[in-house]
Write a protein that binds this DNA or RNA. Sequence first.
RNA 1: GCCCCCAUAGUUCAAUGGAUAGAACGCGGGCCUCCGGAGCCCGAGAUGUAGGUUCGAUUCCUACUGGGGGCACCA
Length: 570
Amino acid sequence: MTVTNILQDKIKKYWQVDGFVIEPAKMQFGDLTVNVAFILAKQRKLPPLQVAREIADKLSQDKELADIFSRIEAVQPGYVNFYFSDKYLKNILADIISGSFGLNMGQGKKIVIEYSSPNTNKPLHLGHLRNDALGMALANILQSLGFEVIKTSVINDRGIHIMQSLLAYLKWGEGKTPDQVGKKGDQFVGDFYVRFHQEAEKDPTLKEEAAELLRRWEQGDQEIRQIWHQLNQWVFQGWHETYDLYGSEFDKWYYESELYDKGKEIIKQAAEKGIVKQRSDGAYVIDLSELGLGSRESGEKVLLRADGTTVYITQDIYLAIKRYEDFNFDKMIYVVASEQEYHFKVLFAILDILGTGLSDKLFHFSYGMVNLPEGKMKSRQGKVVDADELISQMIDLAKVEIERRSPNLPTIEKEENAKAIALSAIKYWFLRANPRSTLTFDPKKSLDFEGDTGPYLLYSYVRLRSILRKAGWKEKVKIEQDLPEAERNLLRKMARWPFVLQHFMDGYNINLICLFLNELASDFNSYYHSHPVLQSDEEIKKLRLQLIAAGSSLLKKGLKMLNIKTVERM
RNA sequence: GCCCCCAUAGUUCAAUGGAUAGAACGCGGGCCUCCGGAGCCCGAGAUGUAGGUUCGAUUCCUACUGGGGGCACCA
């Protein structure tokens, strides 16, 4: 039973009211605040402040609440504010240190996430880094809330663009392998994709040749399938290196080459029920005109072409149903860029009309594009920020800083730290932003090691750990003494953690977790700047060390949720 | 033409219909005989425009302006 639940029940019981919100207050107004007086005031036609006073008085007399709150007061214009008691704060201190302080709301519930979902004709780019940062953070956060999380990815390994890189390899690859030319497999294949488009500008017949290859691939032509398979293996290998470095993990891969033909039965069965109709030319279509989602002319969406082949959405309909059979999930989150919002609207609507009952369980986690200062990325022209290149540039930058700031670290630790610092910068930069907004990525300016950044959080953690190390701190002890103001305020801040997680769940607001962690780090940085720990008297030192331990524990836990690795020294 | 998203300091980003709109970078000024200066402290600086709903609007609604995305028998 969380504090919110207890409070909610009391208020509902005493005043038979609903629709009020309990939320963290600004620090100067207490720890929690409730707006119930505004609601009751309207019903009773009384001034809100008068009602708030009545509520505060009544709740102040409640014995159970007296343990949790030291003060409950009504203030203008009609809020009821709650201040946590020292007893409550000291209680949660032990939980924070042991890592058990948080929110457990997902038990017995299963969430499937789809993210990353790359194309096998090219390496991962900047967009994937945003996608993967969001996908992995969602997965880790939900997992820590008690959900069972399954991470999936759908690999786009077929289609005309795949055949284009394959054709370029046949023509100009000279039968070489990535190892022979010393390239990562995905980079190797990606270069042929760029080459195809360069050559196709000069020679338009290449497009027809690629189309012919696709026909042969679909007919199961052995030779083509074999080369295609080889190219895919190289690409997968390259990706895995990047994924390992970036920290992306997957439980299950789906391959479009195994799915693209599926879903025909579903459509035909729907046609028998009259939900889908067959046009005079033989194509199967669904009428979406009432929802305004169909094509511009007919208001219909094609699900099977006249020749009986499937379209992209047919595969997605099939996959949604298949994945539900595979996992029986409570929720399925698609982490896919905002350019596909329309697609998912249509997909969910169709699943609804088909009567699958799935649409309520499906959620499109949409995020904005990542642009360059000079405009949009264009992979055909090779005008992308390559993920590998960006990561390695960031690691080099981090190395320079490490050499400058801490030249005496062992070499191995320098290497590891450079990785951790660089990756924290990239991930945090994506995660702290509103996912919906388009980000402009300026390689020179956007990623910084100072201020509200990943490295700042790592640094803050390192300093907390350093104090504990020097103090020889080992374990949590019970705090008997009263809390001085500065210490109480730190605990009050940490006490907000479950509400941050609660608020995260409102709309998977990852950036709120970033915001909280930054505030937490910042609070600690100012705190020990003015409150020496190691030099203080035994009693107060004991308390301060407990707080430092709690802060480092919470910071580490939060960073882990964001899929950001901490280091012990830097 | 139609639909969706975004618009907050010079810049990159916060803010749950409420209380004094928060940070960071940059700018100006301080702080290393004191647990780590990737830090701390102080200062200047913002809700695109016009209406509406509300006791109260950055937040909701309408129009406009500017930016992004989409409207395939492509994926």
